[in-house]
Simulated scan of single mutants.
Amino acid sequence: NDIEAIKKATEGNPNVVAVFFETIQGEGGVNPMRIDYLQQLRKLCDERDWLMMIDEVQCGMGRTGKWFAHQWAGILPDVMPLAKGLGSGVPIGAVVAGPKAAHIFAPGNHGTTFGGNPLAMRAGVETIRIMEEEGLLQNAADVGAHLKAALERELGSLPGVKEIRGQGLMLGIELTKPCGALVGQAAEAGLLLSVTADTVIRMVPSLTLTKAEADEIVALLTPLVKALLAE
């Protein structure tokens, strides 16, 4: 989130050709980029003729309430890899390229054994159709806001809770102590979650999540976090 830092790191280096980043870091601890920083970075890429390559594998496909997380900043990438949610559980990956980069790969430049296979392609098409028909982008935005507000209400003021952040149904709760033990404890209570960066509870529930289910998540998680912080 520091445009001056990237300018300084690349100053005088003619070998920089692209920047590659996640709009919201997933494994790094659910760290969102600020909208103004994304806009500044788009401008810098244009000025220096760099490709802007945005990894939307985890934060894309409706997870934040828009098809792709970078859309909140009103920018367009030059290259965008996709996967995970694109296939609803069926292994799939895709790379989308704009005019500045699409010509780089020509027929015959790159091959893949299972690329374009009918099962994966059909899964991708059906995923997009269902998401559109069932309004899952809006659901992710609405239920995500509800879940975040409930987490902030129950956990936000606790000593030991550093920050609750994220957007839509991609949320992180950063604690002041390691919390890996919560993964097993939550599973025993009937809640699946993950921990990243040692101290961040990562929550990426289904885009079909309801507000009632979000409330159930908070009810299950709150006593576990309180118990951990009391140790």
Rank of each mutant, 00 (worst) to 15 (best):
G135Y: 09
P159Q: 01
L192G: 08
A120F: 00
A123N: 07
K66N: 09
L119M: 09
G172S: 06
A141G: 06
A212Q: 12
N139F: 01
T127H: 07
G160E: 00
Q138F: 06
A219H: 13
K162W: 09
K66D: 04
T23G: 14
T199I: 04
N15Q: 11
I75N: 06
L207Q: 08
N139V: 03
G124H: 01
G93P: 02
Q40L: 04
G26M: 05
L224Q: 10
I35T: 15
D49C: 02
G65T: 02
G160A: 04
L137Q: 10
K211D: 12
G89K: 04
A5I: 01
V204H: 06
G60R: 03
A83T: 09
W72F: 15
G87W: 00
K7A: 02
A120P: 13
L221P: 14
T112Y: 14
T199F: 00
G115Y: 02
P178Q: 05
G93T: 00
C59F: 01
M121E: 11
E27D: 14
L51F: 14
V79A: 13
G111N: 07
A102R: 09
A94S: 15
A214M: 07
R153M: 12
E133F: 01
P14A: 08
P159T: 00
T10V: 10
G160Y: 00
D36P: 12
G65M: 04
G93V: 02
V16E: 11
A141M: 03
L158S: 11
L119C: 07
L169S: 10
R34L: 06
N109W: 06
G62L: 05
K7Q: 14
C179K: 01
I104H: 09
D78N: 11
M80Q: 11
E216Q: 13
L171V: 03
N109F: 07
A186M: 04
A123I: 06
K148N: 05
M131F: 08
A186E: 03
I104S: 09
N13T: 08
A94T: 03
S157L: 06
L171R: 08
V200I: 05
G172K: 02
G29T: 09
D215Y: 05
G116S: 10
V79D: 08
W72S: 13
D46Q: 08
A102C: 08
Q185T: 11
L192D: 11
E22W: 07
E134W: 03
C179W: 00
L158T: 10
N109A: 10
M33R: 12
A189M: 03
A227C: 03
M203T: 05
Q58K: 15
K8Q: 14
L155I: 13
E163M: 07
G74E: 06
M170N: 09
G74K: 05
M170D: 06
A212N: 10
V19M: 09
G190R: 15
A94Y: 03
M170S: 11
D55V: 08
L158M: 10
A97K: 10
A214N: 09
G98F: 07
A141F: 05
A189C: 08
K84G: 07
W72Q: 11
T176V: 04
A102P: 04
N117V: 01
Y37L: 15
L193A: 08
G115L: 01
P91V: 00
K162M: 12
H146G: 05
L207S: 09
P159D: 09
A101D: 00
T176D: 12
C45M: 10
V79E: 07
